[in-house]
Design a protein around this nucleic acid. Structure first.
Lengths: 230, 230
DNA sequence: TGTACATCAGTGAACGCGCGTTCACTGATGTAC
DNA sequence: TGTACATCAGTGAACGCGCGTTCACTGATGTAC
């Protein structure tokens, strides 16, 4: 018998079941948050005996980790789709699309958002696997800045020497963007998440009436600070 | 016997023990986060039998709630102390003081910060008791804007009509500040928390080297947007 | 192609755990007359 | 001032729960010769 080109039945079934388990786990997170996620409950919903799930995830932490990675993936997908639909030269529009996609995803999946950007799971340390997906998300904002520079839409800024070295690591991760504009980008980035977190976590309750309008307004302020008066 | 002016021994002891229990609970939160807080463990550390704690808190949720209120209180205290040390006319300095106090408190009490501004406890709905303390914190930033207006340090801005009505509730809560400047204040406020959350929750890991410098830099950008070029 | 063995998925029972909460109780503190 | 009763703090046992994880097992699928 020749070496099978396709994966064996066994490994295909395995992949399918793994996907299915993750899907169920995701529903549990959506329903009641990550902190109460239980391997037993997931196994139960999958029609498995509780110990069987250990064939797929060696521990609860590993399941959570898989969920986190998948969360970043889905978020990155959503943001990429949103941003890529905008004409390349429309920098403000691209920034808006990023912001709106992020917010829409967070509103549609509040517990997943909380899993990624809320209180870290106690004892959990993000493994290296997550980095790639996180970078995907931030790369999108980066690309807007890069294009703004290329199109001469933003003026060169200056930052102090201490500040330059305070974000040296960022410059290593994202070498295309000069430090002066990275400083802007990082503020824009965290401000955006500040807005979304406040909305999702309820801190704008009794403060904001119309979140759509409010968000659009504030996002444009952020955008103006980062891609200038383009 | 005349009506006792001082509280009875019993009620004084009760208050002391309640305080002590909260202190222990706070330590538990500091050590391992709110999600794993257990009434039994707190009772144990207090040298009580597990059921005795029900004389003080009717349920775990009530304990958590008390912790949340106390958290807002302590945060408000910290920010008030920091801000009040600055000369009244130094608006930028006051804004810096607010930001630095917030961040210092969050760094000193990361789990408390997470309890207040991270993932909401599932099923938990902030009771009205918390509102007063939350307002204390935001009132400080508000006072800076009010003073900036009084001192003519910020120019009148304009906002669209939809935006004005989108934050009508905020205008009710904080009537002293015109909506145009509230729009700025809300962004500044949530941006500040975005920065702090990203730092505390580890999203600037491998991005920022020197958080003190970075934070100071970005906070000044925020301040410039809210109290202008004062 | 057929047999012998190895791998793997899933079973079912069990372990030990800590949790929130209830309940009937004891004994100390406070109150009314 | 002294007695009788009411209030309250704390005890100890118990309830029922669901959890993560381990382990020896069965039976099906895959692999080597």
């Amino acid at each position: 018998m020749e070496k099978p080109v396709l994966a064996s039945t066994r490994s295909r079934v395995r992949a399918e079941i793994t996907t299915e388990l993750l899907k169920i786990a995701r529903q549990h997170v959506a329903a009641s948050g990550a902190s109460s996620l239980s391997l037993r409950a997931v196994a139960r919903d999958a029609g498995m005996v509780s110990s069987a799930i250990y064939r797929y995830f060696p521990s609860r932490d590993e399941l959570l980790n898989a969920l986190i990675i998948q969360g970043y993936e889905q978020l990155a997908d959503a943001v990429e789709v949103g941003e890529s639909a905008v004409r390349r030269n429309d920098l403000l529009g691209r920034h808006r699309a990023v912001a709106n996609s992020l917010r829409a995803w967070a509103r549609a999946n509040p517990h997943d958002y909380a899993l990624l950007y809320g209180t870290p799971v106690p004892g959990y340390v993000a493994p290296i696997d997550t980095v790639a997906q996180v970078l995907r998300v931030s790369a999108i904002l980066t690309s807007i800045i890069v294009d703004a520079l290329r199109l001469n839409r933003i003026a060169p800024a200056t930052i102090s020497k201490p500040m330059r070295s305070a974000i040296r690591m960022a410059s290593v991760t994202v070498p295309e963007v000069p430090a002066e504009h990275l400083a802007n980008g990082l503020l824009a980035w965290s401000s955006l998440f500040g807005l979304v977190s406040f909305e999702i976590f309820g801190h704008f309750h009794n403060v904001v009436d119309d979140f759509d309008v409010f968000f659009a307004f504030e996002v444009d302020r952020i955008a103006n600070a980062v891609v200038g008066i383009s």
